[in-house]
């Protein structure tokens, strides 16, 4: 039986380093360990190893679930303008085409085993002997016509307290088995998944302009503004003369 963390020595260097890398130590322990790291080169090497061999296990392997349960989505069609209309037309025809509804029930008549009618039946259905024979030979049943409906919710059961032992990841340097300390062989319970919040990418990077650049931009804007007014003059949208600015003169 493998030892658990509760049974291990809390002051073991390997366990401390492991918890340090995991971020499970409290502030006092961190301070103490960092003091030791500052003076102990071997401990720093050990810490480097722990940092190097740190790996994030996947919490769930949902790939096969997604593949089996989710409906694959067609890649977004991006075509030309004409192609877009073709796509919309096709989509419209497809949507309004009569499609059998899922879970539709239809009455199906299945011939029942042939049996000799009793004399009493013949007597009671004497008005229409043929109908009586037919009704006696048919049985009305209901069968599911098509059943491919996906479940709305999927429940996956998992024991939270079960131990997860990370498998060695190829490509990561690991220590030979004979050198592993007992603490390293401890089962890891409740592996914490590190969540790194991605920084939002800025939409537009603000530039800091110098005063000279600002004045140059302002001059360009003013020049464009005057050009627009000049164009209006040439188009005859305003009187023929270019007046002085009556707000200033």
């Amino acid at each position: 039986m493998k030892p658990t963390t509760s049974d291990a020595d809390e002051n073991s260097p390997d366990l401390l380093l492991f918890r340090y890398v995991e971020g499970d130590l409290d502030a006092a322990q961190v301070q103490e360990l960092e003091a030791r790291l500052a003076s102990d080169a071997a401990l720093r090497d050990e810490l480097a190893f722990w940092k190097e061999s740190f790996a994030e296990p996947e919490a769930y392997d949902t790939a096969h679930l997604e593949k089996s349960l989710l409906v694959p989505v067609e890649p977004r069609w991006t075509g030309s303008y004409f192609g877009t209309w073709i796509f919309i037309l096709t989509l419209t025809v497809t949507l309004f085409r009569p499609v059998p509804v899922a879970m539709e029930t239809r009455p199906v008549l299945i011939p029942a085993p042939v049996s000799t009618p009793a004399v009493a039946d013949v007597v009671t259905e004497a008005r229409n002997p043929e109908e009586a024979i037919t009704r006696s030979r048919m049985t009305r049943i209901t069968l599911p016509f098509r059943e491919k409906r996906l479940p709305e919710t999927i429940e996956v059961e998992r024991n939270v307290n079960e131990s997860i032992i990370p498998a060695p990841i190829p490509g990561i340097k690991s220590r030979p088995p004979e050198v592993l300390s007992p603490v390293a062989q401890l089962p890891l319970t409740g592996i914490k998944v590190q969540k790194v919040k991605p920084k939002p990418k800025p939409i537009a990077v603000a530039r800091t302009l110098s005063r000279r650049q600002g004045r140059a931009i302002m001059r360009m804007k003013e020049k464009a503004r005057q050009q627009r007014k000049a164009d209006q003059f040439l188009k005859g949208n305003v009187p023929y003369v270019v007046p002085l600015n009556s707000e200033n003169f």
Binding site: K229, F233, L234, V241, P243
Partner: peptide, 12 residues
């Protein structure tokens, strides 16, 4: 009389 040049100047 007014003469407009390029829509920017007026010579009179």
């Amino acid at each position: 009389p007014k003469f407009s040049l390029k829509g920017k100047y007026t010579v009179s």
